[in-house]
Design a protein around this nucleic acid. Structure first.
Lengths: 146, 146
DNA sequence: GTCATTGCAAACCCTTTGCAACTTC
DNA sequence: GAAGTTGCAAAGGGTTTGCAATGAC
């Protein structure tokens, strides 16, 4: 997965620096979590390689880059610092139903989501991004209110 | 709708000041739009009542208040200024397409979303919550990458 | 009269930018 | 060697806060 990510960067003629590598690795190692820039920076600083003096600005710049090429995605936070998550080079359709009661997470069938996307495209000319869709509600076990 | 909003505020023992009234009115008059704090402040300043000297901080504080009681809803913007929308005391379904490029926000037809919800229900027994659904992507004007 | 709210300005915090030194290809 | 990247520190922009004055109930 990381190798494929580097390959993607190469293809786009984006230079792979030790800092970028280190940042991507951290994101990768924390798949499923949602890291703040600060977290990443702290982890870099804690390391003892040559990347331990990576500046905050560099982290911001790398993350912004990864977002642009689709390797990383930013959770929409209200006013708090941004949180980022590794997605990987092959946008894995990764759509989830999240139960507000018990936290259970289920996958949504991609075809179902694709149909939805297509309808949006048709109705609005709006291209839905590849980022994972999250739908909140109540699972069959916790079903309570609508 | 506005009257009901005031009633809600009274019930919660929240003081209704001219500033709050004016702000809520502006939001109400622009239902369906997504105003920034700056917009609201500008509109207040443009008026010639006693609320024309309302401070920016007051707008922030009022909006935060309205959000807490559920009269107003904040669209999750990435790094750009927050955008707010009047929902009113009885929250209706309100689903959005959000452009990652320009921040443009469009409404999704409820029927489209309802179809999606129904399919999820059928496939997974999962009841989607009433909270607004947000779909990210690129609008017809910014359309670039998938 | 009491206690919340306002306006102002300063503080905050996350993020971006300018620039010289330094890497990557 | 050319062009992109880094680190640092300073600037930026939206939002929050402290506080005395003001206003709602």
């Amino acid at each position: 997965m990381l190798e494929e990510s580097y390959k993607l960067l190469k293809e786009r003629e984006i230079r792979i620096t030790p800092q970028r590598k280190a940042i991507l690795e951290i994101l990768y190692d924390h798949r499923g979590e949602h890291l703040e820039i600060e977290d990443i920076h702290r982890m870099l600083s804690a390391g003892r390689g040559d990347t331990s003096r990576t500046g905050l600005a560099t982290v911001y710049r790398a993350i912004e880059l990864f977002q642009r090429v689709g390797l990383v995605y930013r959770l929409p936070m209200d006013n708090s610092p941004g949180r980022y998550e590794f997605i990987g080079p092959r946008a894995p359709d990764h759509h989830h139903l999240i139960c507000l009661e018990c936290g259970r997470v289920e996958e949504i069938d991609d075809r179902l989501v694709d149909g939805f996307k297509k309808r949006i495209m048709k109705a609005k000319g709006f291209t839905v991004s590849e980022r994972p869709i999250k739908v909140y509600g109540y699972c069959r076990y916790c079903k309570k209110r609508p």
